[in-house]
Nucleic acid binder design. Structure first.
Lengths: 157, 157
DNA sequence: ATGATCTCCGATCTAAATGGTCGGATAAAG
DNA sequence: CTTTATCCGACCATTTAGATCGGAGATCAT
């Protein structure tokens, strides 16, 4: 349950890879192309390409066309949160259909629904979790995930 | 993204309803049957029936056959966590396929996978979240969800 | 300029999961 | 022994995820 899609998996791997190449010691600033990532992680090329297009359209990476082309991180790895990445691929976080109900949609259970409020709270907490971890945190054997709270600093790993 | 299934929705509603009837002021200890719940919340009867069967098989509720039959909470609402309910309907919490990899399964990305560890951490945190909220918490306008962590006590939202 | 190598974009296919349905077996109350 | 309920398993339809294909438009090296 609560599985994220393969596309999201691929997006995370690709971004992590691009970031690590770009800010790594070996070839800093190097452009990374789709094929390289696909081969490294055994991801179907075309599917990965589509994922990267979305990421580029959403401003996470910038694309450079032509030979020697490829992708480059568009902003700092510390400014990209897991929540942002996942939402850009899979749409807004929503445990239940009614959490972002648009006009015209209708929830048959709504009138007597007894679980909406608590579920929204949980959803909120999950969002915080995902939005407090950045791509930067995923690089290296770095610090890592914490629960956001004024009173909790650096609960590591 | 991260949506829970309708079945889970129904399970939560049903359990909340059963619990609130059973421990409510009006008719404490009353048995609740499937049709009552289905009508109250506009849930397809047969589908709800199947969900309740699973919940009963998993020890959340006990079934009483025959006319005047129905369901009854099998243990205290405070001892039933949201995580338990969801897992009993949708299977174990797993952000990614590789989190509970069995023998014979194989992850093509595994050898160079760079996101497994951080994702497992997130998954863990989500699990804590879901496992710290009980059915009892969902009744009434009660206290509510906290983040479990040795160093974090009562971060309320 | 021309071909090679890329990104870009849209249409399409397949398989699996999900939501929902049906029919009948079994058990208990009246 | 009929009614009312749970139980159980098979089944179908729709949606979504995952993957594929074909080609158009940049860009760079030669």
């Amino acid at each position: 349950m609560l599985k994220i899609s393969k596309k999201s998996d691929y997006a995370l791997m690709a971004l992590q890879h691009i970031a690590s190449v770009q800010f790594g010691d070996i070839t800093p600033g190097r452009v990374v192309n789709t094929k390289e990532i696909a081969e490294e992680y055994n991801i179907p090329l075309e599917l990965l390409a589509k994922v990267l297009q979305v990421l580029s359209k959403n401003g996470f990476i910038e694309s450079h066309n032509g030979p020697k082309g490829g992708y480059l991180l568009a902003r700092s790895a510390r400014q990209i949160t897991i929540a942002q990445i996942l939402e850009s691929i899979e749409g807004p976080l929503a445990l239940t259909d009614c959490s972002h109900e648009k006009e015209g949609e209708f929830c048959m259970q709504r009138e007597h629904c007894n679980i909406r409020t608590p579920l929204l709270k949980i959803q909120d907490s999950i969002y915080q979790l995902l939005n407090n971890m950045t791509l930067g945190d995923m690089l290296g054997g770095t610090p890592l995930i914490t629960i956001q709270s004024p009173s909790t600093q650096g609960v590591e790993r």
